[in-house]
Design a protein around this nucleic acid. Structure first.
Lengths: 243, 243
DNA sequence: CAGTGGTCTAGACCACATA
DNA sequence: ATGTGGTCTAGACCACTGG
């Protein structure tokens, strides 16, 4: 997708991609908000001075990125973070039987701290920047299955300090309260061993194998927004990856 | 394009999808083989009695599935299993530094066996069917990193018994020797602990955490072809997943 | 019914690769 | 120069949704 142009001419960006970019910008700046219905293809086409087919290509591309939702006969809508399929786009833990449960979360702590060198590297922050750290345990059904720490730049999430509590679905929170939409994420998976505190949180023995998942989530403009490290019990659940 | 109405619920498959299906069939039956150049869009269009734009949509869909490779000014080609990017589509293990090495394999054993109940379930085989079991260790750089067992239905891979040895890239083998192209795969990841034999194969201690990856690979017609279970050391490598 | 997205066509022109 | 895929347009018609 992304063209690593060395340094040269305007490089020729197709019209439909330019259209896509201007429409994505409307999502970023918030003039189009989740759930909202977009103007029809013909309206957008005449507004932007391109043909309806070109607008369609742009809308199709954004739909493929899960930014929009199109329904024949109804219209084109800005995707909601809660939309079932979108939600599971970022939650890959599945019961071995196949059922896809959605986790309940219990927050253990939420503190403001100075960003470590690693935090600054991952989140692209300047020296001296602050971050939020949220620790929580997530349950699938009855049992605790995930223990995780979420790291967020305070600069983009000032008001987090004034919130009574952190909701279960933080990506909906980022979107609705802070106007930040997570577009994609990259995860690094490793096998590890539960230490004493992790074992206590998850109700397993020290030394039990756990799946560690390190995630970096990016906003629509590809800037890093959230860093997260999760430790999961995979005795009756697994991480599903489709290739 | 004939409108094969089957008197049932679906009743209306878009023309470009019908075109895609007939073209995919040419890949399945082998009248188009990897590396081959396809006729031009206009030739296909006139042959199939549809417009060039409709052929284009079908070709674009197949390109998105990594079945074809299109290059402006050159033509449209059947994708090779060795194509760099395609190869890494199915190999997600990355060095922590970021380099993507490709593994070297050492085969430990290759035996024919009666399919277990689990094998039959996963591969869709009848009672009494036979399977091949291939055990191998894979190295990334110097050190052994993966120990895996591949299970294949003998019915689809008869000639495997006569082969002197198993090449490193088995998906290229399936394609070139058996005419079977792997289109997609689903993986289930868990954390586990190395037992004595695994520890010996990977050169780690018994009890060391390992990432277990269970994969079911499907052919272009969505029939299961290969079942594989891999155990990976993730001390200096990780499994990368993009969401 | 009117309005939306979805499909299909036809033709023009652009960008790229090769001979 | 020729042939390829890539883009863009314009228009017609189909399929679905909701009043």
């Amino acid at each position: 997708m992304s063209e690593t142009t060395t340094s040269e001419a305007p490089a020729f960006r197709p019209l439909y991609q330019q259209v896509r970019d201007t429409l994505v910008r409307r999502l970023i700046v918030g003039s189009w908000t989740p759930g909202m219905m977009l103007p029809s293809e013909f309206q957008l086409a005449s507004e932007l001075g391109v043909s309806q087919g070109t607008v369609r290509k742009a809308l199709d591309a954004m739909t493929a990125e899960h930014l929009l939702l199109r329904r024949q006969g109804r219209g084109t809508f800005v995707a909601l973070p809660e939309e079932g399929r979108i939600l599971f786009k970022f939650f890959r833990l599945v019961a071995d039987g196949g059922e896809r449960l959605f986790p309940q979360s219990r927050v253990l702590g939420r503190v403001k701290a100075r960003a470590s060198a690693a935090d600054r590297e991952q989140l692209g922050l300047a020296k001296g920047a602050d971050v939020w750290r949220i620790d929580r345990v997530r349950h699938l059904g009855e049992a605790p299955v995930i223990s995780e720490r979420i790291t967020l730049p305070v600069a983009r999430f000032e008001a987090l300090g004034q919130m009574a509590d952190i909701p279960n679905n933080v990506y909906a929170l980022y979107s609705e309260v802070f106007g930040i939409t997570i577009g994609k994420a990259a995860e690094k998976l490793k096998a590890a061993i539960a230490d004493a505190t992790l074992a206590e949180r998850l109700g397993c023995e020290t030394g039990h194998p756990v799946l560690s998942i390190e995630r970096l989530a990016l906003a629509l403009d590809d800037t890093p927004v959230e860093h997260r490290i999760s430790f999961c019990l995979t005795d009756s659940f697994h991480y599903r990856s489709d290739l």
